[in-house]
């Protein structure tokens, strides 16, 4: 909106430039749909017209979004290929533009976005994106000292049922319809990725600043989920019974707690 002297004030100028730079079409379409004529606000240079000059920013916007999302979704980007991934990013940032000072959480809605899209293989792709999102979340979570390996075993037997095991912040549980753990590993090892439909349960966690993926059984996944949600061990066992019509076997519980403690999944024991 021009001022009385004909000049465009700072706020509408910035609104205009952002609308052009982030427009999903090419820069000519962007300029066409904008409220201010580009030549009214941008000077030509000796070598470039105003539209070409603002086009530099327009071109870099999408490249920057692609680069940021490729960093978080490397396997997904590889499987889709350059063209399809660019198409996905273009559509995604149109719906979910960055609203943060950091790129870290730009891709948080991507798994859901894929799941609700009409993309081919969307279940597999969304599952894979869910795994990669969990990895980025775990990467950035707050650090916590894990419990010593024997801490849970040393709880007095009469108090075990009332104990709450507090998980480390850098832990996420992922369930998928496809074996995305294997697909991710194949990508990482530069092997061909062959999506295989198979229910998969994974604990994604961080230890010594490294991110790990621990495959779980459905039962282990469910029980660990109850603990992470804040249930006491006694109540988690009862809920497990409600879900599977059986109690977890002593041997199962022993193995689970041994493996989870060794992996450093727990930060504290709360017995009230």
């Amino acid at each position: 909106m021009p001022r009385s002297d004909g000049a465009v004030a700072l706020a509408p100028l910035q609104e205009w430039m952002q609308s052009v730079v982030t427009h999903h079409g090419d820069v000519y379409e962007a300029a066409e749909s904008a409220s201010i004529d580009v030549e009214t606000v941008i000077l030509p240079s000796a070598t470039l017209e105003p539209i070409q000059r603002v086009g530099i920013y327009h071109g870099m916007y999408l490249l920057r979004m692609i680069e940021a999302l490729t960093a978080d979704y490397g396997a997904l980007a590889h499987i889709l290929g350059e063209e399809k991934f660019e198409e996905l990013v273009r559509a995604y940032v149109l719906r979910h533009p960055s609203r943060s000072y950091t790129f870290n959480r730009l891709g948080d809605a991507l798994p859901e976005f894929i799941a609700s899209s009409k993309m081919k293989r969307r279940v597999f792709l969304s599952d894979l994106a869910t795994l990669e999102l969990a990895m980025t979340q775990v990467f950035d979570e707050a650090e916590a000292e894990p419990l010593p390996g024997d801490a849970i075993a040393s709880i007095a037997p009469e108090r075990i049922a009332d104990a709450r095991i507090v998980s480390i912040p850098a832990l996420r549980l992922v369930s998928a319809d496809y074996d995305v753990n294997e697909a991710f590993q194949a990508w990482r090892e530069e092997r061909p990725v062959k999506p295989r439909r198979e229910k998969t349960w994974i604990a994604v966690h961080r230890r010594d600043y490294g991110v790990f993926r621990m495959p779980l059984t459905r039962e282990a996944f469910t029980f660990l989920g109850f603990l992470i949600a804040g249930e006491t061990i006694g109540s988690a066992i009862a809920m497990f019974h409600g879900r599977f019509r059986r109690l977890p076997e002593q041997n199962e519980l022993f193995t689970w707690f041994r493996d989870w403690s060794a992996a450093g999944l727990f930060a504290a024991i709360d017995i009230t």
Partner: peptide, 11 residues
């Protein structure tokens, strides 16, 4: 950026 958005460029 404006209107709550971040273009992640030095405009």
């Amino acid at each position: 950026g404006v209107s709550g958005r971040n273009v992640h460029d030095l405009l």
